[in-house]
Design a protein around this nucleic acid. Structure first.
Length: 421
DNA sequence: TCTGGGGTCCTAGGACCC
DNA sequence: TCTGGGGTCCTAGGACCC
């Protein structure tokens, strides 16, 4: 059996754990620039708020109901995620991190010595005690079914946090009651097609013949069909290293000068490079994109992307930033109000330093060591302690707005919480 | 005035090879 | 009227996920 452990409204729960006065109150976490709502507690949902709502459109609801709003702080949430994961690993040996708030737990063998439901309830209590993060667990024979079970566990108090689908009767009942749109792997496109073919519940899909599924759909939906019938076939085993690394942001204010566009791109390139070195990899290809504000119909619209292959896979901030700036120059257009830019590193290979005949960069290993030294200084003394001047720019119109940021209580000794007794 | 960010996998189609 | 067969590699774009 496989369990999926899912943190309930994770980002909002982290904020609530660190602001204990908010227990039982509506809480929302916003995206960068405080632009949209990305996580919200059930109390906030009850007010009619939804994930994805632009904050400026719901300002009234937020204000009138005293909703606590926070600017998203991913560093903080990642640190809390690590704590929750470590408690899960104390309970189950073989686990697999699927996302910042979800973990698969492999329970094979545990049924001999434990009641699986009670084992998971014990783990949930431990997590609540040590972190204050509420967790729901679904148990079933496949990951897709475990996800279904975890939603039942989340939505019905009677399960006390854990729902197990361990018989065919339970599987059929669950699938007959579950929303087709909520099945893992079924997005808006497949949903519309399924409905047009007369399939409206997960059970109806599961009961179709395999040939029928393959006739109308491709491999991904076929795999979902297999899993709904209890045959495991989705492999999410962790990729050791990421295959692409992206840093992109919408700007706090629109910008129109090439210098500012380049400053943003240089800053994002640096950020990509330190992530790249963090996983001991090098990138063979770099892309830079920029676009105008698609919501401003009164302004001229423009978007473009340019890519370049690096002569040798590289993790050197200086080399990659130089390439990024050339690409930024290519796509820059005077007279456009830019709203967003980004840098994408791809063709990622393991290893930081590749010795190659006719390498245009001399002393590549020393250059990588320089970048690593900068990483260590920034880690020790705070982000952006040392960086490239070109990334600083002269004014910082493009920088994010974050007006409700929780301090990095869990990762920065200078921001640690003060307790007054 | 104000509308997020970062991933994966799959497929079709073009370019190129013999 | 007739116009090979069989590959590989690369890229763009769609669909989906959190």
């Amino acid at each position: 059996m496989i369990a999926l452990a899912d943190c309930n409204t994770f980002f909002a729960s982290v904020e609530r754990a660190l602001h204990p006065g908010l227990k039982g109150k509506p809480v929302c976490v916003m995206s960068s620039n405080d632009g949209i709502i990305v996580a919200l507690t059930s109390e906030a949902k009850a007010l009619g708020l939804k994930r994805g709502d632009p904050v400026f459109k719901v300002k009234d609801i937020l204000g009138k109901n005293g909703v606590a709003v926070f600017s998203g702080n991913l560093m903080l949430y990642a640190a809390m995620s690590k704590r929750v994961q470590s408690i899960m690993r104390r309970t189950v040996e073989h686990t697999e991190c699927y996302s910042i708030d979800e973990q698969f737990l492999y329970l094979d063998g545990y049924e001999k010595h434990y009641d699986l439901v009670e084992l998971m309830r014990g783990m949930i209590r431990q997590i609540a005690l040590w972190t204050d993060i509420p967790v729901s667990v679904g148990i079933a024979k496949t990951k897709t079914l475990a996800k279904v079970a975890s939603k039942f566990a989340k939505n019905y108090k009677g399960y006390k946090g854990v729902c197990m689908i361990d018989t065919d009767a339970k599987r059929r009942k669950a699938l007959s009651l579950f929303e087709l749109a909520d099945v893992w792997g079924i997005g808006p496109g497949s949903l519309a097609k399924l409905i047009s073919l007369g399939v409206t519940t997960p059970l109806q899909l599961a009961d179709k013949r395999g040939e029928w599924v393959l006739k109308h759909f491709h491999k991904p939906i076929y795999q979902t069909w297999m899993e709904l019938n209890g045959h495991p076939c989705i492999d999410t085993s962790e990729l050791i290293a990421r295959q692409t690394i992206t840093t992109s942001r919408s700007f706090g204010n629109m910008i129109s000068s090439e210098e500012e566009l380049k400053a943003s791109v240089a800053s994002f390139a640096s950020s990509c490079c330190s992530t790249l070195r963090g996983q001991d990899s090098a990138a063979g290809r770099i892309s830079v994109f920029a676009c105008s504000n698609r919501f401003r119909e009164d302004l001229s619209q423009y978007g473009n992307i340019a890519s370049q292959r690096l002569p040798v896979p590289s993790a050197d901030t200086l080399e990659i930033t130089a390439a990024a700036l050339e690409l930024a120059h290519k796509i820059y257009r005077p007279g456009i109000q830019f709203k967003k830019s980004g840098v994408i590193l791809s063709d990622i290979v393991p290893g930081c330093c590749h010795n190659v005949l006719f390498d245009p960069v001399e002393k590549r290993d020393e250059r990588v060591e320089l970048s690593r030294t900068i990483d260590r200084m920034n880690h020790k003394y705070g982000l952006r302690t040392v960086g490239l001047a070109v990334a600083a720019g002269r004014n910082e119109q493009w920088k994010n707005r974050k007006e409700h940021l929780t301090p990095n209580y869990l990762t920065d000794i200078d921001q640690i919480m003060t307790v007054k007794i």
